Amino acid sequence: MPLLDIKNLTIELDTDAGRIAVLEKVSLTMNPGEIHGLVGESGSGRSVLTKAILGILGSNWHVIADRMMFDGKNLLELTAKERRYLMGCDMAMIFQDPSGSLDPVKTVGSQLIEAMVPNKNIPFWRRSKDTYLNAQKWLHKVGIKSPKALMKCYPWELSDGECQKVMIAMAVANHPKLLIADEPTNSMELNTQAQIFRLLSQLNQLQNVSILLVSHELETLVKYCKNLTVLYGGQMMESGLTTDLVAAPFHPYTRSLLKNLPDYTGKIKHKADLPTLQGSAPSIQNLPAGCRLGPRCPEAKRQCVKQPSVEIYKDRAFACHFPYQDEQESDDDTFA
């Protein structure tokens, strides 16, 4: 049974211009122990999707879905109290801005202990000390060299990398089944980025934590994720095994993202322009009709003014009227 199963999720926001669908019929499936990548440009709806999974909804949000299941539970039917308990124990999230997500007037240790669930198997007079030692243990596991000293520090005394490690320790201390990492290495040095990605990979392998890794860096997701889902303008473009998407992308947007990756093996002229997809992502106030990639798509035709339905072909899901066919397939082989 999938750990996370979302079918045709639509999120609409009430704005001054009326109700706008910022996420439109997006489906996502994750199995236990899987690292799933969610890639897209800024404004593609990645953060909106993760907040909907956690239940962090705004007052002007309207969530509609055919199915939204987590570990056999219907997320749409849970009460606010049940969602908070689920988010504190079985789900956790690493936010984009670790420094801004921590309270600047409280020590790191007090915030970490506050987020941890005490072990009820230990007598109540020992739980406080046990939780304190457990917090130090998790700080050490995420790569903090002096966890006891760092417990007494305030967030503004730490670097961005250290704050990110504290956020990771806070997220995994309760052994969640699903960890959502939303741009976990945003604005960090390359060495720190590599260290955090290795840490997330170790948590997945040793603790069997399922990770939804959100990023706009396709090159990084290809390295660490088993499956990928590509979003654009609030619509799902393509989803499937990472190796299949890289070897033979069906959607023009996926192919454009792969072509935009720098080629480190060849010779690039000094100050040469890198290949890019012309145009920019649409704003929510000016969303195009039909396929939202249409104004930028190199394969766009008149039919693209109608939203394409999601097609399934060999465990690959994609939404395009004119997908690329694998050149190795025979001419008689058609998409389902």
Rank of each mutant, 00 (worst) to 15 (best):
I284H: 05
V310H: 03
D332W: 06
A319P: 11
H270R: 14
D71A: 12
F322S: 04
D16Y: 09
E183T: 06
E114Q: 12
H36D: 02
P147M: 04
D71G: 00
P295K: 07
L49T: 13
T79P: 00
I94H: 00
L28T: 06
N208D: 14
A80K: 13
C320I: 00
R255S: 08
L203C: 11
A300K: 09
S201N: 08
E157P: 10
P2Q: 00
P262E: 04
F322D: 06
A281D: 02
R292M: 00
T242G: 08
I94S: 01
K120V: 08
I56D: 14
N227S: 08
Q96G: 05
A65G: 06
S42D: 03
K301C: 08
A80Q: 13
E77A: 12
K25F: 03
A92N: 03
L57A: 06
K7Q: 14
N60A: 13
I284L: 13
Y154T: 04
S280P: 04
V63M: 02
K141C: 03
S187A: 15
I196Q: 08
T29K: 11
A319I: 04
F250K: 14
D16L: 07
E217H: 12
D5V: 03
H62K: 12
P123A: 13
A248G: 01
S101Y: 06
H175K: 13
Q307E: 12
P288F: 02
N119W: 01
